[in-house]
Each structure stands twice: as structure tokens, then as C-alpha cells.
Nucleic acid binder design. Structure first.
Lengths: 106, 106
DNA sequence: ATAACATATTGATTATTCTAGATATATAAA
DNA sequence: TTTATATATCTAGAATAATCAATATGTTAT
């Protein structure tokens, strides 16, 4: 059985109303292509560390961290802690559900 | 031949990042159900006049007019002038193209 | 022409978002 | 246990968005 969970259009749109945040989401679609490999883990299964995202975005550490927290609050990304690092990856089911919500309700 | 026109995700998300504007778009999906009939035209083919939208939204005339102009600039709605009134209707192809853009690029 | 009406635009105020520096917290290394 | 590193949170100023009252514009009726 498939449960469709309607997403909050306004809340998610606020996250997507910023160029940097949208670009981060897109970069995370293909970490191998968009980021250097991690030295402490040999895969991107848990996503990309904040520092790499910050370097690529060219904004301050606090700004990127704030952005990622906002994206996490909207459930668009999932954080995983590995030692000192926090890795962020896309939350694909939520992203898909959001698009389904737009299709149904917008 | 079907041409896919990629929409600007950030720009449209800014429009959708507001509860009133999203509700207006939804009301316009079913004008017969959501608005009183117009007296000067006997159909909703060209959409709904600003005054009805304003009454339903409960915000000032200038605010609603500003919102509708913003939605028009994002091409989400199409205005049609009939005498003193401006009627707004949804721009379905653009709304669909936006959802397609999200599916492809987000 | 003038008055009345619907909508758009302008100007101003308040609220929210953006953004960075400073500081705090958590973890690992020495 | 101190030190270094990565990320998160706090604080604050600048930029943008929300909102309305007042005014302007365009259209119709008198």
C-alpha cells in the first residue's frame, strides 16, 4: 500500500525561492560529478559534507549551515553524522511527494 | 512537435512562497465553485475579476492587485480586460511546464 | 464633460529573509 | 586534557517582501 503524504507547498517553496539552495539540491543529485571525493569515507551514500558544499557555493560557513538546516526542517535533505562531519543527502521520497502534491493541488 | 520550455524554479517558487497567492491559484482552478457568477459576462472562460478574488482573500485591493501582477509576471496567470474589469485565469501550460521542470531539474 | 467605479501604481511602514562575524558545541588528534 | 577541526547557533545589519492608504489610470454611465 502506498501512502501519499501531501507536502506543504508554501513551506517548501520558501526553501526553493533561493538560488543557492536550489543549486545545492541539484549538486546533491550527482555528488561524484559535483564534489571531490571524501577522504574519510570512500562513498557518497550518506551525502556530502558541509565544507564541500560551502566551497562550491562560495558563501560563508554559517550561511550554508543555516541553509542546510532550513532544508532539513523542510525534510528536503537528510543529515548523517560521521565523526566531525555532517553529510547531507537528498530526501528523494519527499522531493517526489512534493512534485506529486503540486500536480494534485496546485 | 512538443517544445519543453524550462521554467525558472526560483522565480516561480517566490510566487508560491505565499499562502494567499497559492490559494488564489487553487481557487482559479474551479471558479464556478469558488466565486459568485459574474453579472457582465455569463461565463468564467476568461477567469475571475480582481474584486471577487480580493473579497475571498480578505486583503486590501492594492495587495491583491500587486499579487496578481506578480503572478502575471511569472506567467502563472493570464489577465483579460473586459470593460472596467480585469479577469485573471490560470496559465495551465506554464503551470504544467513548471512541474515538468521540477521533475527534470530539481 | 463629469461622475462613478474597477484596477493599477506609488509611497511608506512593518515583517521576514539574507548574510556574515562571533561564539558555542561536538568530535578527533596530540 | 588541551588543541585543532567541522558544524551549529547567536547576533546584528542590509536587503527584500508584505501590506495598506492614498493616488493615478482607464472605462462606463450620466
Amino acid at each position: 500500500m502506498y501512502y501519499f503524504c501531501a507536502m506543504n507547498i508554501v513551506e517548501i517553496s520558501k526553501v526553493l525561492a533561493n538560488d543557492t539552495r536550489v543549486r545545492i539540491l541539484r549538486w546533491l543529485k550527482d555528488p561524484v560529478a559535483n564534489f571531490p571525493p571524501h577522504q574519510d569515507i570512500d562513498h557518497f551514500d550518506d551525502g556530502v559534507c558541509v565544507g564541500y558544499i560551502q566551497d562550491k557555493a562560495g558563501l560563508s560557513q554559517s550561511t550554508i549551515s543555516t541553509y542546510l538546516t532550513a532544508m532539513q526542517n523542510a525534510q528536503l535533505v537528510i543529515p548523517t553524522r560521521h565523526g566531525k562531519w555532517t553529510y547531507y543527502k537528498r530526501n528523494e521520497p519527499v522531493i517526489e511527494a512534493y512534485i506529486e502534491t503540486l500536480k494534485a493541488e496546485l
